[in-house]
Amino acid sequence: MTAAWSFRRAAQQSTIRSMEAIEVTGLRKTYGGQDAVAGIDLVVARGEIFSLLGPNGAGKTTTVEILEGHRRRTAGDVRVLGEDPGTAGSAWRARIGIVLQDADDAADLTVHEMVRHIGGFYPDPRPADEAIELVGLTAKRNSKIRTLSGGQRRRVDVALGIVGRPELLFLDEPTTGFDPEARRRFWDLIRTLAGDGTTILLTTHYLDEAEALADRLAVVSAGRIVAEGTPATLGGRGAAEARVSWTENGVTRVEQVTDPSDLIRHLVASGADLSTLTITRPTLEDTYLSLIGAAR
């Protein structure tokens, strides 16, 4: 009782201290003289789903592991839920949830045994069966983790990340190896958690995933943030011209316009054949690729 009470009190105190879930200024991490993270500034508000995108080796995982308290930083100021992850103790860890990317542990335990075991370390955990249900593994409740498929194994990681009812959840490439249906269900779960007020920091390779989930996102390349915004506005995407294409007398016509309304009205009035009409804007993927291309 006393432990749970002091955890809750610590939680309330730091809520007063900071409205932001994550505040990072000038973060650097150097390995043998090489910058893996070369000066990152980042603010994630409470309740937000924030996504970090970037190629392998861009410094995403290093950044996230510093925020999780798994790695020490070389320089910079970092506040996560109002505390420095480099020195924060177990009361702070009770408020975060980490979904590991490549863990292979507890192969000989059943799903339920492992979720209940990890849940037991938190002051106010979800019942193990509830966490298992949330990731859609109820049918595998009594299966040994060794026998699960790669995607199911990752869902156990997610269950372990949320069993402690975290205020802030770190998801590092969580849907690698998921089948399409499992991914959709996972997205629903993330939206539900965010709806309950959980802050989520998501790193992913899948741009559709970032687009579907993130309130805001940032692209990391070579240890720096090269663009930041909402999925609709990232890298000037919202202001980019639309590409309108149609067929006129057997010839394909293409025009780039800021607002296609006038052009379409004109085409309709002129009685043009619009059966092949397309209007496209740069996809998030186009924007992303040009951003990391330019940064290289």
């Binding site: 955890f7 308290g69 980490i98």
Partner: peptide, 14 residues
């Protein structure tokens, strides 16, 4: 190696 320690270190367990 298999992530047991990494996982535990991310929980409140000392």
């Amino acid at each position: 190696e298999d992530g047991t320690l990494k996982r535990l270190r991310g929980t409140p367990m000392p």
